[in-house]
């Protein structure tokens, strides 16, 4: 198989993930988009590994690490989303705005 095919698929997956992160507001969907991006990375790594054949299987090793890392990130992410749901009653990343800067305070100060 030519190297270009898996690389193209990886770019497609990555762009899909970026779109999901930027356009979606539901925190769970954003987490799923991260998974897409990380899997694009895995595909790249494994494809380059098969192309390079450097005898160390560096790409495959890093891919295993990335899978573990993704699991850890999603575990923590779901815990934080759950906490957000308990406090706010929704999992919408854009409408959680308790912390935004309050301009009226700044005008009094100046």
């Amino acid at each position: 198989m030519p190297l270009i095919l898996p690389l193209l698929l990886a770019v497609l997956l990555f762009c899909l993930g970026v779109y999901g992160v930027l356009a979606r507001r539901n925190a769970i969907t954003i987490l799923m988009s991260f998974e897409l991006m990380l899997n694009a990375v895995n595909l790249n790594l494994v494809a380059f590994d098969a192309w390079r054949l450097d005898g160390l299987a560096t790409g495959q090793t890093l891919a295993v690490f990335v899978i573990t890392l993704a699991a850890a990130e999603i575990g923590l992410g779901l815990a934080i989303v759950l906490l957000l749901f308990r406090g706010h009653g929704h999992v919408d990343a854009d409408t959680a705005r308790d912390l935004r800067e309050q301009p009226e305070l700044q005008e009094n100060e100046l």
């Binding site: 990555f14 993930g17 992160v21 925190a27 954003i30 987490l31 991260f34 991006m37 990380l38 694009a40 990375v41 790249n44 990335v66 890392l69 990130e73 923590l76 992410g77 934080i80 989303v81 906490l83 957000l84 308990r86 406090g87 706010h88 990343a93 959680a96 705005r97 308790d98 912390l99």
Partner: peptide, 21 residues
């Protein structure tokens, strides 16, 4: 705390994915 953590978390995971790419 949960809102602050969510913001930092989303940005950080995005940056990790970009860096790994």
């Amino acid at each position: 705390g949960s809102e602050g953590a969510l913001k930092a978390f989303l940005v950080s995971v995005l940056s990790t994915a970009v860096m790994l790419f």
